[in-house]
């Protein structure tokens, strides 16, 4: 083929156009799917959002009405307790990882964290069932929280580590040089400076666990009654969606749509907070 082969060039250009067209079309179809799903959720869910959904518990089969007040409270308990467990542990590992960057031990721990993130959530549920539910004789909110806390650890660890690595060494050295102990340097200098990034990681973690059911099936289990104790089984919003999803009762389906909408809106708000503040929170010097 000579450089003057116009037809060959034309053909290559047409090929290029077609390929780009495919890339555009496939990317756009991804976006369209997002909108179809969200539109459908809003359309189905918005009609079932009413006062009773937030204030009433479930009604027996056949009775109209009822809500998911107990599941909302249950979800809050399970997720908040999980966050209380996971955040201090996650931040601690993140600090250790940032300090030992490049050492073999830190690399091994990083691999362990990656593997932890990849474990199917249902397997975490089984393990917590064996560790906590079986020996203590029953399903409980706290066992669900522990399962979710394990799922929440990896994002908290990673964002803490990444944030701390952005902080210049000089800042740490200045604090240590003034006679501050390592503990004080971390508590008074490193954590406050990296607060934004660490907080972002915690929010990502909460967004990750808020919609999980699989690890809760054998731990927090479910409970139609309103419960405020962490030692009793509780309902959670995603669990209610799962239970009602394939039910033949239209009223239950309606409640499940409402629950789905609440859950998705909550998670999208968390994600938006992260995206909006991502740059503001980044450590800058």
């Amino acid at each position: 083929m000579t450089p003057f082969d116009i037809r060959g060039t034309k053909r290559r250009q047409i090929k290029d156009r077609i390929f780009s067209g495919f890339v555009w079309a496939l990317t756009f179809s991804c976006l369209i799917v997002v909108f179809i799903i969200l539109f459908y959720l809003f359309e189905k869910g918005i009609g079932s959002i009413n006062w009773a959904l937030f204030t009433k518990g479930p009604k027996p089969v056949g009775e109209f009405g009822g809500g998911i007040a107990n599941a909302i409270v249950g979800s809050l308990i399970v997720v908040v307790v999980a966050a209380i467990i996971a955040i201090p542990l996650g931040i601690s590992v993140g600090i250790y990882q940032a300090d030992n960057r490049g050492k073999r031990i830190a690399e091994r721990i990083a691999v362990a964290v990656d593997v932890l993130q990849g474990i199917p959530s249902i397997v975490i549920g089984i393990v917590i069932y064996v560790w906590i539910v079986k020996p203590f004789g029953g399903f409980s909110a706290i066992s669900g929280s522990i399962a979710l806390a394990i799922m929440m650890l990896p994002p908290v660890i990673k964002s803490t580590e990444e944030t701390l690595l952005l902080i210049p060494h000089t800042l740490k050295e200045a604090a240590l040089g003034l006679g501050a102990s390592y503990y004080h340097t971390v508590r008074k200098i490193l954590i406050p400076t990296g607060m934004g990034g660490i907080l972002g990681g915690c929010i990502i973690g909460v967004a990750r666990i808020a919609g999980e059911v699989a690890p809760l099936l054998f731990t927090a289990f479910g409970n139609p009654a309103m419960v405020f104790s962490i030692f009793k089984p509780v309902d959670t919003i995603p669990k209610v969606i799962f239970a009602y999803a394939s039910s033949p009762y239209e009223d239950w389906q309606r409640i499940a749509w409402g629950g789905s909408l609440i859950l998705v809106v909550f998670i999208i708000i968390l994600n938006t907070i992260i995206k909006l503040f991502e740059n503001k929170w980044k450590v800058q010097f």
Binding site: I37, E212, V213, N271
Partner: peptide, 10 residues
């Protein structure tokens, strides 16, 4: 961001 169970339901 959409939970697995919501995908299933949808």
């Amino acid at each position: 961001a959409i939970p697995s169970v919501v995908y299933g339901f949808w």
